[in-house]
Simulated assay, not measured.
Amino acid sequence: MPLLAGCGRAAEPYRQESYVFGTRVELTLYADEPTLAARAAGSVLADLDRLHRQLHAWAPDSEVAAANRALASGQPFTPSPELAELLRQGQRLEALSDGLFSPGIGALVAAWGFHADSYAARLPVPGTLAALVAARPRLADIRWQHGQPLGRKPALQLDFGGMAKGWALDRARRSLLKAGISSALLNIGGNIMALGRKPDGTPWRVGIRHPRHAAAMLSLALHDGEALGTSGDYQRYFELGGRRYCHLIDPRDGNADCRVQSVSVLAMPGRDAGLLSDVASKPLYFAGAEQAAKLARRFALAGWLLVDAQGAVWVTPALRQRLQWQQPPDSLHVTGAP
């Protein structure tokens, strides 16, 4: 998870924290009037709290839970504008990633136990896992009829945990700009976006955590509109029989066996920068160092960094030049583009 790196400041920022989408949210804002910053931050957090209740796949009274019941029974449903956007964006990004990212594998997430806030160190029931993998649930299985989604496979269950934080980051940015905030750093569960610069003219500086130590591995300056996201095997995981299993589940085979330690991606400024920073790290994680460059080009990333299972770091040339190392790796490979 990226970490906010300390740096000098020209004025006292307004800071507010919360806990949404099962993760920590940190807002750091600069404004001429403290009341303006407080109102803007409060509006963002209220929206995030509403979206959390609406999109929680495992809360029985959420919209996504109701959608999953409809999909399982083969019934069409009428989504809210937010859910419709997530479904359509999810279908687009699933296709772009060749299925290495899919919000349709909620049943696999539940089979591993990672749908709960606390989970046991246990493997899925073999028959259940094999059946879900054979069914290949994907958002591509949803067709639209008169604006209503209709599922084709009972195994298809929605879980937007791999994209909702980044999608919400884009909403938060638009909300702050509309409120007149032009200097801020937004962090939703390790997906970080910069608005403008700090009042002293310097860019925001953020860190990326070392996947095996609770400290920053490196830092980099984050420019206006850029978004940084990291997926790693150290956030939600358990160990069993000498092996580590994490919440990153490969849609191809249903495995959660942590083949890579972490992947960080840098998304260029744009309307969906936050969304891409959240989504793109997953297919790169499953593709591994040798295939990451091809997928990164599809997502038009500004750069990416991968820590493989042995702790070696793979990084793109442009991103390498922006890094300041706190814990330099023993093995560094500059590879691919961008």
Rank of each mutant, 00 (worst) to 15 (best):
A214D: 03
E226V: 09
G190L: 08
D330P: 09
M1T: 06
P199N: 00
M268H: 02
V64A: 05
L55E: 03
I192P: 07
H115E: 02
A130I: 12
A130N: 00
K178Y: 08
R9F: 12
S43A: 08
Q16A: 13
L36I: 13
M163N: 07
D117N: 07
G254F: 04
A107L: 07
A267T: 14
Q145I: 15
V307K: 00
R92Y: 00
S281K: 05
H213E: 04
G113A: 14
V334P: 07
R136G: 09
G336L: 09
L156R: 02
G242M: 10
Q326C: 09
L139V: 10
L248I: 05
A31C: 14
E82T: 07
M268E: 08
L27N: 00
P137H: 03
K198M: 11
P199E: 00
G242L: 10
A227W: 02
G232W: 13
L276V: 14
R243T: 13
Q310C: 08
R252C: 15
R212F: 15
L156G: 02
A107E: 00
Y14I: 06
D32G: 13
A5M: 09
G8F: 08
W58A: 09
V125H: 05
S118G: 14
L240M: 06
D159R: 03
A65R: 03
A293Y: 11
R197D: 07
P269H: 08
L158S: 00
V64K: 03
Q91N: 04
Y234E: 02
G232E: 04
M163K: 00
Y245M: 06
H56D: 05
P103F: 15
L186D: 01
D272K: 08
F299C: 11
